[in-house]
Design a protein around this nucleic acid. Sequence first.
RNA 1: GGAGAGGUGGCUGAGUGGUUUAAGGCGCACGCCUGGAAAGCGUGAGUGGGCUCAUACCCCACCGGGGGUUCGAAUCCCCCCCUCUCCGCCA
Length: 435
Amino acid sequence: MLDIKLLREKADWVRERLATRHGGDDARVNEVLDLDERRRSALTEAEQLKAQRNSASKEIGALMGQKKIAEAEARKAEVRAIGDRITELDRLSAEAETQRDLIMAMIPNLPHASVALGRDAADNPEIRVHGAPREFAFKPLNHIELCERLRLIDFARGAKLSGSGFLLYTGWGARLERALINFLLDLHTHEHGYSEVAPPFIIGEHCMVGVGQFPKFRDQAYAVQEGLDASTLGKLYLLPTAEAPVANIHREELLAEAQLPIRYCAYSPCFRAEAGAAGVGTRGMIRVHQFDKVELIKVVSPETGYAELEAMVLNAEKVLQLLGLHYRVINLCTGDMGFASSKTYDIEVWAPGQGSFLEVSSCSNTEDFQARRMNLRYKTSAGENRFPHILNGSGTALARLFVALVETHQQADGSVAIPEPLRPYLKADCIPAGA
RNA sequence: GGAGAGGUGGCUGAGUGGUUUAAGGCGCACGCCUGGAAAGCGUGAGUGGGCUCAUACCCCACCGGGGGUUCGAAUCCCCCCCUCUCCGCCA
């Protein structure tokens, strides 16, 4: 949510900034300003009348105390008329406010000044590259072939259980997934200073609104209902990312400045309906309805927000470095950024079997956009209440990391070598070919 | 799911229709006092919104949330949420 005061005071500038991003050019700024004006004029009049009524009621109380019943009754009749007008004005201002906030909730965040202008993914500047694609002395297999040969994933039975887009990890595959989760959590908690949290996987609608998933992307979520009781539908959702519950941990709170910075990491499965994406790259494990992810969340002061973002990207990159993977970091241009973000870095890992980069992490500073939506504030030592910056980043997504790992470290004999840092977790230095 | 008890400021705890601008206490900040402290005394302190150049005044709202009754609601009525105790069910 943008600051309504910013819209009032710098409407033209806001419109300009919004126009640089995808979906930002149809933001209904004028409508918001009009509703805001209507709200305030009704509110101001209502408040004046309420002040009148309050003092009149006090007088009536005094008259009653003095047993001047007739006089009191006369005043009552007077005030009753004011009451009707107040009811009407309250209705008008509440209506305008609801409408205003409904539209405000659909307006995306403003891009940070350092973000490159652009239309889409083709305009994303590359920030840095680590390593190089591995050269193979044999013809490398893609992850689907590898998973089938090594029985890491049973694609057919996964689909049999839940439909296409759902994976059944088996044997070494299941163990590798679990090893990766533990490896990531340990790395971020022990080496990078995050505290681990384990959130609910089913979350309230307000959490989705708080991080900006709703109302815009409601059709991308799985809604749950209790049994066949349709009246419970729409209240709870399967989380699309741990960002949704974890960023909301301190919603509606007023933190002390000394509590910042807050750094959380959390493992969770992520559920995505991927509505409209059916048939696009649905084979294998690159785009699925459920995948595991370790998420990083920070709540920090605005002064440190962007330094914390840079640090977060490095924390995510460390994962790929330790696993011996080739990757690049890109900066999403204005036209390619997500709804709630002011600045986003994506990390893409090289997958030899695909011959392409796969997005395994997206690190964003949402500035005060999410904090405002969830009413999370902190009190400065000077006593001022401010909205903190809220950052989120994948550290990292698992399914695609799994793909890059097995495709990159496959051996000529059909086995998959396990990078040294991961060995203690898998309790093995390779996934054997004959498994 | 059933029965009961609760939800008031940073904490505690009064308040069942009108000097309550939410008593009192604890804690907090500042000041006085003191060689310094404690005690004591005094002052101050919440959140959001409106008006505004103003973070100055003034005004409105806020006692879990939302409706209602009333000239006036923390207080009365209705619905919902949460916490606790017991029962049922259950990993």
